[in-house]
Design a protein around this nucleic acid. Structure first.
Length: 279
DNA sequence: CAAGACTCCTGACGGC
DNA sequence: TGCCGTCAGGAGTCTT
């Protein structure tokens, strides 16, 4: 599933072909891809607009339009976004035809991906947390924010209103590198470990961006159609039953918060169960 | 506030 | 060989 590094890779790749271009035509072949507004207003708000800037926040890609509105989108599980001379793809759900003859194709096998056109980012992405790959997120920030909540680390790090950009893969990888068990409670993580967690998150993200993302299954490809390379550097994700690359202990898979979760009990000691003290 | 259930979808995969 | 049931998974929404 595309996470922050995969979206970053896509944004970098399409940026030069999209910025400064005018949208001439909008094609939507799976209507529920457009979350809002109505299909009619979606088209009306896009045709004739110049795309001024392409960027991303968390896993969302964002196109700033000259009207001041924003086209934002999420690839979810199986979405792809790329430029093509043809507005065609077996799983194409929507496409923007540009004034340079190129078509920005949004393809998505599982149809979970979404596009939103909104007048402000606040309206498009309410309650999206800070991007995991910015300086705003540092050791102090993590220490403070973890202490505010009493949640398991895994679902908390997956929560995009807490921190934007991490998905199942990079949460497992970051927790492993920080030596933190997914079921540790956020408020019980010591300050030193909070700082280690931030370092681990940033390291994993930057390494993955350098490798142009991960291709853990058939879906994700770089914009040139090549698989990413970062999956070769996974320490625990998808390695259940295999030895941990750091300590050699067998990696275990269990379900945490409805997500397949990969844990090395050598590197990530289970939280000590709290005893109920009576009397 | 926290956390689980449910929903949307389809290809992959296991079983027979 | 081929059919069929089961499953994964991001995020919004609803329920406990």
């Amino acid at each position: 599933m595309p996470e922050l590094p995969e979206v970053e890779t896509i944004v970098r790749q399409i940026r030069s072909g999209v910025e400064g271009r005018e949208v001439q035509e909008v094609t939507v072949s799976w209507p529920s891809t457009v979350a809002r507004p109505s299909l009619e207003n979606f088209r009306r708000g896009l045709v004739g607009q110049v795309i001024e800037r392409v960027w991303r926040r968390g896993k969302w890609f964002i196109f700033d339009l000259d009207s001041g509105s924003h086209l934002v989108g999420h690839l979810r599980m199986s979405g792809r976004l790329y430029l093509s001379p043809f507005p065609e793809h077996p799983y194409m759900r929507a496409a923007l035809s540009l004034d340079n003859g190129q078509h920005l194709v949004f393809a998505d096998v599982r149809k979970f991906g979404r596009l939103i056109l909104a007048e402000s980012l606040e309206e498009a992405l309410p309650s999206l947390g800070p991007d995991a790959n910015t300086d705003e997120v540092d050791g102090l920030w993590m220490e403070k924010e973890l202490r505010k909540r009493k949640r398991f680390l895994k679902p908390l790090l997956l929560d995009q209103s807490f921190l934007a950009g991490l998905g199942n893969i990079y949460v497992d990888e970051a927790l492993h590198r920080a030596g933190l068990h997914p079921l540790r409670k956020s408020h019980r993580v010591p300050a030193s470990k909070a700082r280690e967690l931030v370092s681990a998150i940033k390291l994993v993200l930057q390494e993955a961006i350098e490798a142009e993302g991960s291709s853990f299954d058939i879906f994700y490809r770089t914009p040139e159609g090549q698989p990413g390379a970062f999956q070769d550097q996974f320490q625990v994700y998808g390695r259940s039953g295999k030895p941990c690359r750091r300590c050699g202990r067998v990696v275990v898979r269990r379900v945490v918060a409805q997500r397949g979760t990969h844990i090395c009990h050598g590197c990530q000691p289970a939280p000590r169960p709290r005893k109920l003290i009576v009397g």
